[in-house]
Structures are given as C-alpha cells and as structure tokens.
C-alpha cells in the first residue's frame, strides 16, 4: 500500500522577534493508509507542532508534508482532530457539539444526525445526547470530542494526547473503544502520546522522537496481532518493545546534543 501521509525533511522554527525556537529538525516519516501510527517523545519535542503541520493548520519552515500524494498547503478537509482537552462548546448539548463540524461545513444535517447518533451509541453515551458538557465527566467529554472528530467520517484521524488528562482506568477503557472504532472504520490514525505502553498497545508503528528540536530517532513496527487485548501487555514481545522505546528515549535525552539545539 502506498503511504497516505508522507512527511519529508520537515523543519519548523518559531520566530518571535529576535528569538527563535527550533521545534522540528529534518523530520521524515510516512503513514500507510489504514494504519495506526503513534508519535512518542519527551514533552516539548514538537509532537503537537508536527500534528498541526500534518493537518495543514501550521506551515512547515521547510520540507513538506503530502497527503494522498498532494502537498499540504492549508487546513486539510478530510481530517478529524482530537485534542488533549475536550474543547467542547459549553452552550451546546452533546449532540450539538458532535454536529459542530457538520454545521461549519454546511453538510446535510439530517443525514449526519443519524451518524452522530450512531457514534453516540458506539462510545456508550446513549441517553446523554441532550446533556451539556458540565454535566459530563472528563472521560465522557473526551468521548464526545472523539465523536465530533469522527462525525464527518474523515479519512485521517489526528489525536494529540487525547486521553493524557484522564486517569489510567478511563484511559484503558477509551483505548479499547478507540481501537474498536478504528478497526470498524479503518481510518488512518496519527496518535500522539507520552505513554509508551499506550502507544505500543494501539499502534502498527511507533515513531520515536528526540528532545527538542524533535528528530525521528526510530520508526518501529509493532507486529502484535489484532484485535489487541490487555493480556498482550504481559507478553514478552510487548514488554521488550516498551523497554526498547524507553531505552531509546532515555539515551536521547541523556545526550548533551539535545541542549545544544535549544535557542539560537
């Protein structure tokens, strides 16, 4: 299969006045259609920035990202995004929030309302359709945010530490649900996380990044069978993989070169 997302030698330098911060350095990777790829790396290494560049929300300083063979030059159309916080509209109900992309894109409301309801059932929020965000728990809010990202049935799902703010138990639950949804719909998923176990559990491949300026240290293929289950977490393959990634991250951050590339 041809890669759906291709990043080639992406650099990103933030300039504000005389100061400049290099966030990304020569980042290249590709994501195959229908695969689940995670980005792991230390805080501040440019994962969010990279995700924004892929989505077309932020331009790269140099290098390029292309999706389905087309160079990304502005916000992509067929992308769903989930952020670390749910970012829901407080004045809209669960269903209203999920339908927001439909409203913005001026799509057929009645048709998508069906989809929205189906998604609500899928993530187990049935009966909460008319509730408002403040009436939901953090995990439920993040489920709504996931539904919102999926409602227009985008080809690509970009997730920036979507479950990072949740407790471990809720995160496990949502990971399983996410995999179920992804299995059913075969989206191409790019997932950012701090959590190595979560990355291994979810992904077909993991891109390990260095401290700022973020570079790709390694791209690991995870060949655990699917569907994934929690029992796999105790398999030796799983443990070996997490240990390897941990080692890579540790040696990358122990590297004094990391400090040399800071502000210039």
């Amino acid at each position: 299969m041809a890669p759906l997302i291709e990043a080639e030698e992406v650099f990103k330098i933030f300039k504000s006045g005389a100061k400049s911060v290099q966030a990304l350095e020569r980042v290249s990777f590709d994501v195959e259609q229908g695969s689940f790829v995670s980005l792991v790396g230390p805080s501040g290494c440019g994962k969010s920035t990279l995700l924004k560049i892929v989505s077309g929300l932020l331009p790269a300083s140099s290098g390029s990202v292309s999706v389905a063979g087309r160079r990304v030059e502005g916000p992509l159309e067929n992308v769903g995004m989930v952020f670390q916080s749910p970012v829901l509209l407080k004045w809209k109900s669960v269903l209203g929030n999920i339908m927001l992309p439909v409203e913005f894109a001026r799509l057929d409301r009645t048709r998508y309302l069906e989809k929205a309801r189906a998604l609500v059932r899928l993530v187990g929020l049935e009966g909460f359709e008319e509730m408002y965000p403040y009436q939901l728990s953090g995990g439920m809010q993040q489920r709504v945010s996931l539904c919102r990202a999926l409602v227009t049935d985008p080809q690509i799902l970009l997730m920036d530490e979507p479950f990072g703010a949740l407790d471990a138990m809720t995160r496990d639950e949502l990971d399983i649900e996410l995999l179920k949804i992804w299995d059913g719909k075969r989206k191409t998923a790019l997932f950012v996380t701090h959590n190595i176990q979560e990355a291994v559990f979810l992904s077909d491949a993991i891109i390990v990044m260095s401290p700022r300026p973020g570079r790709v240290i390694e791209r690991l293929a995870i060949d655990l069978p699917r569907p994934r289950s929690f029992e796999m977490m105790s398999s030796s393959k799983f443990c070996d993989t997490t240990l390897r990634i941990r080692g890579m991250l540790a040696s990358a951050s122990g590297n004094p070169a990391a400090a040399a590339g800071s502000t210039t």
Partner: peptide, 25 residues
C-alpha cells in the same frame, strides 16, 4: 480556546460562523 479555532479552520468554518457560533456565545 485556540483549539476551538483550529477545529473551525479544519472544518472550513466561515468567519461569520466563528463569530456567531463561537466568539459571541
């Protein structure tokens, strides 16, 4: 929230939509 504006951009919300559906409320 800046993410909300990102969301609007990704879904090609018009400037008027951003005002009426996000900023004003």
């Amino acid at each position: 929230e800046p993410e909300l504006l990102d969301l609007a951009r990704i879904n090609r919300a018009s400037e008027l939509d951003v005002f009426a559906k996000i900023r004003l409320p």
